[in-house]
């Protein structure tokens, strides 16, 4: 699928505008699920996916096939847009705290910690690493490029995230052992 996306991107760079639609169909689910798992905000995830594709069109010639996959390039664009947007939101919320939207956790509260909540509770930097590694089968090098951090940092954040998740889901782990 990824090779296909790369081929389509090359075709798009050469002027085949229809190829963009196929890239969108191929990569939209992965990109949306990454952003959604990171933010748990549907509207924000849709906005970021759409903005990423607008940026991909604008900077289509910046993509160099020899340097990496188009999936990584698109995820890099999306991650930067997402961080900018979240930082801007934080600034607004520090000026006007009552503008803070009600999070879903306030609507649904269960005593048992689900994997969704455990991932949401992870620090932002660890969350991005574990999502890209586990759900998107990305290598350390690709994650390092997307997040703009050294490869060693990816490894250490991944290790810490796994340990944190195990601690968060401790009840479940003990239950499964006793069964």
């Amino acid at each position: 699928m990824i090779e296909r996306a790369d081929e389509l991107m090359i075709a798009y760079q050469k002027g085949d505008d229809e190829a963009l639609g196929s890239i969108y169909t191929l990569l939209k689910p992965a990109l949306y699920s990454f952003i959604y798992r990171y933010t748990r905000d549907q509207q924000l995830s849709i906005d970021i996916v759409q903005d990423s594709f607008v940026k991909l069109q604008r900077y289509k010639h910046h993509y160099q096939p020899g340097k990496g996959k188009v999936k990584s390039y698109l995820f890099q664009i999306a991650y930067r847009l997402l961080i900018d947007k979240l930082n801007r939101r934080k600034k607004w919320q520090s000026f006007m705290p009552f503008l803070a939207p009600i999070t879903k956790e306030e609507f649904h509260h269960t005593d048992r910690l689900t994997i969704r909540e455990a991932i949401s509770n992870l620090p932002d930097k660890q969350r991005a690493v574990i999502l890209l590694f586990y759900y998107h089968d990305m290598k350390h090098e690709e994650i390092a490029e997307i997040l703009n951090i050294p490869k060693g940092t990816v490894k250490s954040r991944l290790h810490t995230a796994i340990q944190s998740l195990k601690v968060e889901l401790e009840g479940d782990f003990n239950e499964s052992r006793s069964l």
Binding site: L20, G21, Y24, K28, P29, Y32, S33, Y36, R37, Q42, I46, V49, Q50, F53, V54, I115, R116, A118, I119, Y134, Y135, K139, H140, L158, H159, I162, L165, K166, L169, D172, F173, S176
Partner: peptide, 28 residues
């Protein structure tokens, strides 16, 4: 890359439970 999830069977099961429904929306 060494797979850090190799021995984490339970964690893998839990992570696999997290499905995301993709809404239908246009590119722009």
């Amino acid at each position: 890359n060494h797979d850090p999830f190799k021995k984490e069977h339970h964690l893998r099961t839990k992570l696999d439970e997290y499905h995301v429904e993709i809404p239908d929306f246009p590119m722009q």
